[in-house]
Design a binder for these strands. Structure first.
Lengths: 161, 161
DNA sequence: TCTAATCTGTTCATTATTAAACAAAAGCGG
DNA sequence: CCGCTTTTGTTTAATAATGAACAGATTAGA
């Protein structure tokens, strides 16, 4: 992708997150984002529909990056032992971003997105490894992600041990 | 000035300094600067003749910024008491840059430039305030800047108290 | 010394970003 | 409620940056 696009999007999304750390999402204007990102206001509309689409893409990107980093294809869906650990390391490394996305008022989207992704991931895991066959898979899939995300949420918000 | 130009030049000059902190100037290539700055190589030639011109402009810019910040026009060439203090604060704030520019092998330019600027500045000062009239001005002007810069040099290189 | 690799300047067409302007929509204080 | 300011989208022409290519210079190693 063109260097300029990468830089612009990075600046814009970083600005969004930094603003979200201090204001409710609803109070953030495209104007202020452009200012913070040191980018022409028009540039934002070049890549995003509006601020909701921006938040959407931003969240999507963060989740993708987390997954790509923590579940590298090479090892072919590793067992959860080491990958879970990697996830926690990654979250620690980028705690500011995830803390902001999780705690900002008026943005439940992020939590939902993660739960959805985890459901899919776990389903795949369970079908691959025939473990826990004596437990109802469906129930596990419904239950585990929410539980896990709650733990993660707690861990991040309490600024992790 | 166009936002894009500001950003490009800032990235390029920052890259240069960061590279100069770890390599002799002569070993630094335009290639590596472009890489570090995350900028197309051609962009550098859009604003600078070559790496020597880049260093030149970079140094010039740093000196100008220091002067503008420490000798604001409003107060009309203040006496040296507070402005000297401001200079030291500014140097402390930007110590990495000045340390790098002063210590990099093969770049005596920076020291010379500063001495030149100080000579001019002091001359003006002396002509304005009729102080020290009983001392030969010319000798002062020859002597003071070199002495001062030596102190500053020592102060910065020994990572200031 | 010869070769391969890297670096330098420069050119080109394409694309992204900019500044400036605009009308319309919100938001706000009196 | 009514002005006033800010924000939103969108458009325009102008300009800066990009990636790619190129020949020539320099460097490094065999």
């Amino acid at each position: 992708m063109d260097k300029r696009i990468k830089k612009s999007k990075r600046a814009i999304e970083e600005a969004l997150i930094s603003l979200m750390a201090e204001n409710d999402f609803k109070d953030i204007t495209i104007h202020s984002i452009a200012e913070k990102a040191d980018v022409n206001r028009g540039t934002i509309y070049l890549h995003y529909e509006d601020k909701f689409d921006l938040l959407e893409q931003c969240i999507e990107g963060k989740i993708q990056k987390l997954l790509n980093f923590c579940l590298p294809e090479g090892s072919g869906s590793q067992p959860s032992k080491s990958s879970l650990l990697r996830i926690f390391h990654y979250l620690e490394e980028h705690s500011f971003i995830f803390h902001t996305l999780l705690t900002n008022k008026g943005v439940p989207t992020f939590r939902k997105k993660i739960v959805t992704v985890m459901k899919a991931g776990m389903k795949e895991q369970l079908e691959l490894n025939g473990v826990n066959q004596h437990i109802n898979k469906e129930i596990l899939i419904q239950f585990l992600p929410s539980a896990t995300i709650s733990v993660i949420e707690w861990w991040i918000i309490e600024s992790m041990p």
